[in-house]
Amino acid sequence: MSTLNLGELLYRLGEKSERLFSALLSIIRSIITPKAIQRVPNFPLSTRLVMKKGYTIHEVISLHLQLSFLAYLGVNAVAIFLPNSFFTVLVLGLIYLLYLRWIFGSYGHYLVDPKQYVFFYGGVSTLAFLSFLGFVFLRERKAELRYYYIYVSIITIIILLFRWYFKHAFGRDYTYGVVEEVKKDLLRVFVHDDIGANVKPGYYWVPAVPDAEPGRIVKLLVEERFMRSSVPVRVLEVYLDQSSQTDTEPKAEAE
């Protein structure tokens, strides 16, 4: 009887181990080669903050990307002073970059224009990863102070070049919005988070134009502000045919 119980126990243990191994393998596969998930993402903090304002899934993912990047910077700011910091920073960076890959692979299709978000966050995250590794390398070799100044200067130049290239490749002086309300000579327009136009999500008031009725998509001129996000200032075009959307216009699945 005890032999049978032991055999049954070993069988169940082996079965559970096999299931656990399969689950771990599935998780690893989904991280390395993520597939689009049709289920709406639910990142607790990002979802709570965004949905309170009545924004969309696009804004949930955008905010989550921002919070994830800030968290990565914060953790690394502590990790660089820990023992075995080079290995710690290396592992943290690889985990974060894989997580970033998983987010874009799984939920990138919910973004209004995923290309610009992939390029921006992929770029700044890689630069941050290499910057932390370089700092630890100098610290472990007890480099003189002047080398830190040189290193910071080089990193600053690279960041400025990246910013210039991003604006050159994706920067725009316009964005798109959806007319929510017409009030006398003003339009209340909802604009998605638009990293290319440097516009924060929200509702903006702009001068009214003919044919701009509630529900219609409009192209908006944005005005740059020094060290602040840009703001829509006037309507450039009203899209009477809603089927003629571009990649940077609001999509139905992101509403």
Rank of each mutant, 00 (worst) to 15 (best):
S2I: 05
L4P: 00
N5H: 08
N5F: 06
L6T: 07
L9M: 09
L13A: 05
S17I: 07
A23L: 13
A36C: 06
I37R: 14
Q38P: 00
R39P: 01
V40C: 01
N42T: 10
P44G: 09
V50H: 01
V50A: 15
K52D: 12
K53D: 12
G54C: 05
V60S: 03
I61H: 04
S62C: 12
H64A: 09
S68Q: 06
A71W: 04
A71N: 11
Y72V: 06
L73A: 09
N84C: 02
L90I: 04
L92V: 06
L98Q: 14
Y99I: 01
R101W: 14
W102R: 10
F104E: 13
S106T: 14
Y107H: 09
H109I: 06
H109K: 08
V112K: 03
V112A: 06
Q116S: 13
F119C: 01
F120A: 08
Y121P: 00
G123S: 14
V124N: 04
T126N: 03
L130Q: 07
S131Q: 05
F132E: 06
F132K: 11
V136Q: 00
R139S: 10
R146Q: 10
R146E: 11
R146V: 10
Y147S: 11
Y148H: 13
I159W: 07
L160T: 13
L161H: 04
R163W: 14
W164V: 03
F166I: 12
K167W: 11
A169T: 12
Y174S: 09
Y174E: 14
Y174N: 06
K184T: 01
L187H: 04
D193F: 15
G196T: 12
N198E: 14
A208Q: 09
D211A: 01
D211M: 10
E213H: 00
P214T: 02
P214A: 04
I217Q: 00
V218A: 07
V218I: 08
K219F: 08
L221C: 00
V222Y: 09
F226P: 02
R228M: 13
R234L: 04
Q242W: 02
S243G: 01
Q245N: 03
T248C: 09
E253L: 13
